[in-house]
């Protein structure tokens, strides 16, 4: 199978399209979850030190 055929098959075969949808949404979802956690953790380390100092 040449690379051209492979690209063609990606577009024309029923199936890969659904995988793309799942991948895109899954990736976006994962990134958003990580970003949200990152935001919420902002300043936590700092506070931990302060508490220890106290």
């Amino acid at each position: 199978m040449t690379i051209g055929e492979l690209i063609g098959a990606f577009f024309t075969t029923p199936g890969p399209g659904g995988v793309v949808v799942i991948l895109v949404l899954g990736l976006a979802g994962a990134i958003y979850v990580l970003l949200t956690r990152w935001i919420l953790q902002g300043g936590q380390a700092e506070e931990g030190t302060m508490r220890r100092l106290r």
Binding site: T12, P16, G17, G18, V20
Partner: peptide, 17 residues
């Protein structure tokens, strides 16, 4: 079916994504 048999050639799939 759009997930299980999705064809990326169809503009509807682009829409869906």
């Amino acid at each position: 079916n759009v997930i299980s048999h999705g064809r990326f050639q169809s503009p509807l799939l682009w829409d869906f994504t």
